[in-house]
Design a protein around this nucleic acid. Structure first.
Length: 485
RNA sequence: GGCGGCGUAGCCAAGUGGUAAGGCAGAGGUCUGCAAAACCUCCAUCGUCGGUUCAAUUCCGACCGCCGCCUCCA
């Protein structure tokens, strides 16, 4: 079945037909590196990580480009505050961004071009736009003349003359029309700058995305994404530049926009002082809890973030991790057993396999339908319930068929969750881990013996002591199992 | 003023023209030395008012409420 996705340009769900069959060329607007990213930024990057991963899961070869905006006003201002060069500041936060993405489990882009390394290419595009008469020079600035691009406003669905005019902002206008936007900004004294035919300056914000996306993915690439708040003016302008420059459209086949994240139902803003950095969140919560929270809401809907909602997501995630643990434990247990007759599959086993197949079908169908992660996770949760239920009925000496079915269910559970980037935390390894492993096992053997003698006080002491070390002990028929919290 | 979105149980959240997934929380039960995990059961007529229809939460209209964008913003 084909993937259908909501296209901001057409305002409906369109079937994904890529430029080249089996391949997806995708560009997502990356960070402006002037600060640590906040949880809202994280949602956008996570949403596109889900989309990218699922397309790969669905068999596409995905090329994913994401820019780094390492020169703009915010960077310059912030550098001034911190008393360092803009370049140093940008590098500091660019590295921090990469760390954050790694900590979140967001897969790195295939290509991560930086604005400052593509100034020459941008100058070529700007020059061509001036030559074509769609851009004009004004006191060292270069502006795109919106009136020369007939379909301006098509993406964001707004007419040029119906906008609220914020004229008081800049009365000494260098622009012919307030809607015109800068392709090149003349440098003020002390600002970082590059040479250009129009004097020293730096590229306008929108320029880099048009230039670099086309440079690496080619005109008419498949998917361009970003936060919903980038539709206007950023993406509208990108499109205008690119199509005016190429002389034809489309710049992009599908536009995808990720919904905003609010904190306690309010927009994050400096004035409200409710900006929450990803680092703060990750210091309190597991990365997969953050992923679960984002997966629970469709990517285009607004998401209200709070510590409570995160705690809920963590609890929901635990249900899945418990199930995974239950299945793994059962497999290990049955593998150790010698008995077990082979024979025709039982009723329960056949039903179990049917359920597994249905789960995968439903999961894919939901994801194919505009990446409906919330519904897809619903299917996973149903599978969790049915698996636990099946597990409760399989007791000891299971058949080869049952063992195989359990292994398949584990593979499916991990596969579906993995398609959305869950369960990628590295497992502890090494000498010390093996030693700890053995010690815990030894203690639990002692505890088992104590329980057999009804020495519950000792048994409880061992369990509590281990709990303090983060080892959760659970008793099962005739034995025990444990795991790290 | 222009454009767009949203309003589903205590909370979060899918979804459909034919009486509503899933998760969290809660209640009861089973299992257990206790616990944990798990299973079972219970818990909503979908903002309000009209209209279309055999039938609407789902389509249309009005209204109320909330929010976003129109200026930098993921």
């Amino acid at each position: 079945m084909a993937i259908r996705l909501y296209n901001t340009m057409t305002r409906r769900k369109d079937e994904l037909v890529t430029r080249e069959e089996g391949k997806v060329l995708m560009y997502v607007c990356g960070p402006t590196v002037y600060n640590y990213i906040h949880i809202g930024n994280a949602r956008t990057f996570l949403n596109f990580d889900f989309i990218r991963r699922y397309m790969e899961f669905a068999g596409y070869d995905v090329t994913f480009a994401q820019n780094v905006t390492d020169i703009d006003d915010k960077i310059i201002n912030r550098a001034r505050e911190e008393g360092i060069e803009a370049e140093q500041l940008a590098e500091k936060y660019r590295v921090a961004f990469e760390e954050d993405m790694r900590a979140l489990g967001v897969r790195p882009p295939s290509i991560a071009p930086r604005a400052t390394e593509h100034v020459n290419e941008m100058l070529e595009v700007i020059g061509a736009l001036v030559e074509r008469g769609v851009a004009y020079v004004s006191e060292g600035d270069v502006y795109f003349e919106v009136a020369k691009f007939p379909s301006y406003g098509k993406l964001s669905g707004r007419a040029l003359d119906e906008q609220m005019v914020t004229e008081c902002v800049n009365p000494a206008e260098r622009k012919r029309d307030p809607q015109d936007f800068a392709l090149w900004k003349a440098a003020k004294p002390g600002e970082p700058s590059w040479e250009s035919p129009w004097g020293p300056g730096r590229p306008g914000w929108h320029m880099e995305c048009s230039t670099m996306s086309v440079q690496y993915l080619g005109m008419g690439f498949d998917i361009h994404g970003g936060g919903l708040d980038l539709v206007f003016p950023h993406h509208e302008n990108e499109r205008a530049q690119a199509e005016a420059w190429a002389g034809a459209g489309p710049f992009v086949r599908y536009w995808i926009h990720s919904g905003m994240l609010n904190i306690d139902a309010e927009k994050m803003s400096k004035s409200l002082g409710n900006i929450k950095t990803l680092r703060e969140v990750l210091s309190d919560f597991d990365r997969d809890a953050v992923r679960m929270l984002m997966l629970g809401t469709h990517y285009r809907s607004p998401l209200s973030f709070s510590d409570e909602s995160l705690a809920e997501a963590a609890a929901a995630l635990e249900r899945i991790t418990n199930c995974r643990f239950n299945v793994r434990d059962a497999i290990a247990r049955y593998d150790a057993e010698v008995g077990g007759e082979d024979g025709p599959a039982t009723e329960a086993e056949r039903g179990f396999r049917t359920m597994l197949n249905r789960t995968e079908e439903e999961f894919r169908a939901h994801m194919d339908d505009d990446f409906n992660t919330a519904a897809a996770m619903g299917s996973v949760f149903e599978m969790v319930r049915d698996t636990n239920s099946y597990l409760a009925g399989v007791t000891g000496a299971s058949t080869a068929g049952e063992k195989a079915a359990l292994r398949d269910s584990l593979e499916l559970l991990e596969g579906l969750c993995g398609a959305l980037g869950l369960f990628e935390e590295e497992e502890a390894g090494g000498e010390m881990a093996r030693l700890a492993d053995g010690l815990v096992g030894l203690l639990l053997e002692v505890r088992l013996a104590a329980r057999a003698k009804k020495e519950f006080e000792l048994a409880d002491r061992i369990r509590e002591g281990l709990a303090e070390l983060g080892v959760r002990v659970e008793d099962v028929a005739g034995g025990y199992r444990w795991r790290l919290e």
